[in-house]
Amino acid sequence: MSPEFLYTLEVILNGLMAGVMYSLVALGFVLIFKASGIFNYAQGVMALFAAMTLVGIQNGQVPFSHLINAVFGTHIHGFGWTLPAFVAILLTLLVMILFAYLVERFVLKHLVNQDPIILFMATIGLAYFMEGFGDLMWGSEIKVLDVGVPQGASFWLEDFTAGWAAEGSEYYGMYIDKLDLVATVVAIALVVSLTLFSQYTKTGRALRAVADDHQAALSVGISLRKIWVIVWAIAGFVAMVAGIMWGAKSGVQFSLSLIALKALPVLILGGFTSIPGAIVGGLIIGVGEKLFEYSIGPMIGGATENWFAYVLALVFLVFRPQGLFGEKIIERV
């Protein structure tokens, strides 16, 4: 095999894995949008908040320590423990469930039957509130997230592929980050279990029922408020997984919340209401932007990854506004 072919293959693989990360974020949007018609602007901040909480709990940070110290003149900073990763993850999950309950109790409950734009504005408010609240709770410095996910090049893969190129060429094997491999496995497991849950359990059916018809769901005994708490809790869980993967990759800091913006083109490609769409959309954008950068990028000065996804989304909006898997938009006259 020629080295060029192998490089291209490597770019595609890396693209697929970047795509998985985008899909993870987009998935959170789709879950909430399907069940309640709300475009949750706060999804990215939820991922940031979950990652911050995870780091804070794991390192035994005292929540609101700055505030407490400022008010009482104390000097507390940490509990002085380091929790095992899985305990910290479980506790973070509990925090995200509590968060879902509070959102329903104090925001959504009061906005039932409002226009989508009003709900959207509410989630913008929620996003800024959470961002500030997260800073206040855990501090705004950049944190290192380490839950034991392996990082760095996979030497096994590098050694394994090193001999693939033709004799004499300068090819040293494929470079793929172990973190990306783990993220891919986790994302696949997440999607499979979510799908099974929604297909074969009572609550899963109730989630799909609410997505289809609110009135009919009520008439068979489904409480919309309970379902919204569950949906936001699941979205919080997905946000936490995304937060862990992205946080491990680039540190836990404000820019983490901006991954939400990367999910937007994914949603436009995949359709706002389709879980398979979110996954395929993420993969297309991941592969597309990496391939484009690799092949066309050098000709036009590089840095195409910043805009490629949005331009692709624009093209889709013109030719296929409902996305790849979205329900066809039919207007009756």
Partner: peptide
């Protein structure tokens, strides 16, 4: 007012909600 995306079976299964 059916759950349009779901199968006949799943629709009727959802009717069992209050018994589960």
């Amino acid at each position: 007012a059916l759950f349009k995306g779901m199968s006949t079976l799943d629709n009727i299964m959802t009717g069992r909600f209050t018994h589960m």
